[in-house]
């Protein structure tokens, strides 16, 4: 049986509401370089200086409302992606961050994150839109994406989408 592996597994790192793009990656760094591995080393540094040491590849950032508010810097989702974070889960995302994450191929999951705690092990099925909290066997439903956005996600981001369809695929 052939099945695309889209289940992610990792540990949650919990943050609050309104985590802005300045916190995700400070302007001090983002203007200087297009080296995203370098940027990734400073991920969330101003509000959580130890985050970089604590996190492991495949872990999840779990936040409240309005994740990624503030500037339009695409360096924010890129720094998260290059830090090896598997996905960002939040109750809601700021609109530019939402687009940027989809465009660069960072998985984002909109779901009620209240019952997730730091350190919880999670299993996320992106295709089904399900989040599973291992310790208490809790299942959370993710908000589904419109099909237009799914096409971009499935292509792996907007650049790949553009290459695949040669422009905008208008349905």
């Amino acid at each position: 049986m052939k099945q695309k592996k889209k289940v992610l597994r990792g540990y949650a790192h919990k943050f609050g509401d309104n985590i802005n793009t300045d916190y995700i990656i400070s302007g001090r760094y983002k203007f200087k370089t297009l080296n995203f591995r370098e940027l990734a080393r400073h991920l969330l540094e101003d509000i959580d200086p130890d985050f970089n040491k604590r996190k492991a590849a495949g872990d999840f950032i779990v936040a409240g409302e309005n994740f990624g508010c503030g500037s339009s810097r695409e360096q924010a989702p890129l720094a998260i992606k290059y830090a090896g974070i598997g996905a960002v889960l939040a109750k809601s995302f700021a609109r530019i961050f939402y687009r940027n994450a989809i465009n660069i191929g960072l998985p984002i999951v909109r779901t009620n994150t209240e019952k997730i705690e730091s350190g919880d092990e999670l299993e996320i099925d992106l295709a089904l839109g399900e989040v599973h909290v291992i310790k208490n066997n809790l299942s959370l439903k993710a908000e589904p994406f419109p099909s237009f956005i799914l096409d971009i996600i499935e292509a792996g981001g907007l650049i790949e989408y553009f290459k695949k369809y040669g422009g905008w695929k208008i349905r």
Partner: peptide, 20 residues
């Protein structure tokens, strides 16, 4: 309205962008 860099790249290439 504000967008990120990849959106902007497609905008200057095609003169179009998607919106909800």
């Amino acid at each position: 309205t504000g967008v990120g860099s990849t959106d902007l790249a497609t905008a200057i290439a095609s003169g179009k962008l998607w919106f909800r």
